[in-house]
Design a protein around this nucleic acid. Structure first.
Lengths: 215, 215
DNA sequence: GTGAGATATAGGGTAAACCCTAAATTTGCA
DNA sequence: TGCAAATTTAGGGTTTACCCTATATCTCAC
């Protein structure tokens, strides 16, 4: 019997996962945790085989940190990351932190059960969608416009510059603040326009806000 | 028996909702829809009493549009908005579009069932958290919490130009579209910057979006 | 060690935004 | 009818964004 801990702060989601698992003869939901602290506590007190971890729980950096903590502290416990994010760089970061599986939150019952069994069997689990995303992750594709609606994959610097632009700073002001040249900032601005597929700053900010890319 | 349609593109979430509802003797999940199109189709073919609508499904503007469509086309069908967003302005926009209830995605079984029964009984449902948010939404709090100035009083032309700016048009393109000179457009641009108290277009768009001045 | 990605930087140029000053016309309201 | 606001428009100028081309360095993974 594979013992599963669900770490997610949304009741409904936890219920959904549990419902999907409830038909399995081999898997049982042992713990449901709504805070990072309760995850660490339950792990210390209970034998858990697989953790289903919302990687945005409560923020992405927290989820990554928790993933790393679990993997290091409980090597026999496997982590499957759950998230709405499907960009290649996040997938890679999560795997680097020790996750053995990666599922989008629109996963199906079949996939969920299969993922749990696969990671329990000491293998990694990525479904076709995720595999395709990783396979498509080439320099050329990454640079291409995703069109509207898809959240582009921003580098840390790009994300930083985007936020500074949205605060109304000029390129020169950003250069001063980041201790780089104006040319370096312009480069990132160009990359942002290209990645969002927009012609200018106005539409960049509007689009980025709609996609929640701005803090 | 209250017939419920769940409109959300996340399987797990739909399963979760269904699981919460499954114990009720008075409520049954009749339809589960993962696209806007299937919502409209199922509504046309099936009697539905309550729609549980993810308002970010697939984007907020889509959700709002769908909410309005349902309310107008099927007046006896009540919409409960589901979302992770808890800001007062969105709540008000959703209610204006016809929703009778507003639930956060971390709702409990008790609340969910109560909300469904309440709206089915022709009343609005807001839980304590939402009520508090609405009660706290005073001009003073709104100014303080956002750190923004009040929504400025825009002339019709200014509003028009603001929207065109946010669509990425250049000043020349706007002049062509509005049958005025470039200078006229520049004048309105200057007025917008002054009224919003911002130094450039980037911050203008960000601020205007936060204040919901952009369509 | 090599290649790719991220970051930084440069030169040169044009387009566009932004600013300042000023005047004229139209519209709505008291 | 007069006045204020809205709108339109102009001339002139500076600042900033945006585009194109190119090179260099660092880091990381294989």
């Amino acid at each position: 019997m594979i013992r599963v801990l669900i770490a997610d702060d949304h009741n409904v989601f936890v219920e959904g996962i549990e419902s999907l698992i409830s038909g399995s003869a081999e898997i049982v939901v042992t713990e449901r945790c709504h805070t990072v602290q309760s995850v660490t506590e339950r792990l210390a007190q209970t034998g858990i085989d697989v953790v289903l971890l919302d990687i945005s729980f409560p923020q992405i950096e927290d989820g990554l940190g928790l993933c790393e903590f679990i993997t290091r502290t409980y090597p026999s416990t496997k982590v499957i990351a759950l998230t709405m994010h499907d960009d290649a760089s996040l997938i890679k970061r999560v795997v680097k932190k020790g996750a053995k599986g990666y599922l989008l939150k629109n996963t199906t019952k079949t996939e969920l059960l299969q993922a749990i069994q696969t990671v329990y069997g000491e293998k990694q689990y990525f479904n076709e969608t995720i595999m395709q995303i990783l396979l498509d992750d080439t320099p050329k594709n990454r640079r291409a416009s995703h069109g509207l609606g898809a959240k582009p994959n921003l580098t840390p610097r790009e994300s930083e510059v985007l936020n500074l632009i949205s605060q109304g700073l000029t390129t020169q002001q950003m250069a001063n603040q980041l201790f780089v040249s104006v040319k370096a900032v312009e480069f990132h601005r160009s990359s942002l326009l290209m990645k969002f597929g927009v012609p200018n700053t106005a539409l960049l900010i509007k689009t980025a806000m709609e996609l929640h890319c701005i803090d």
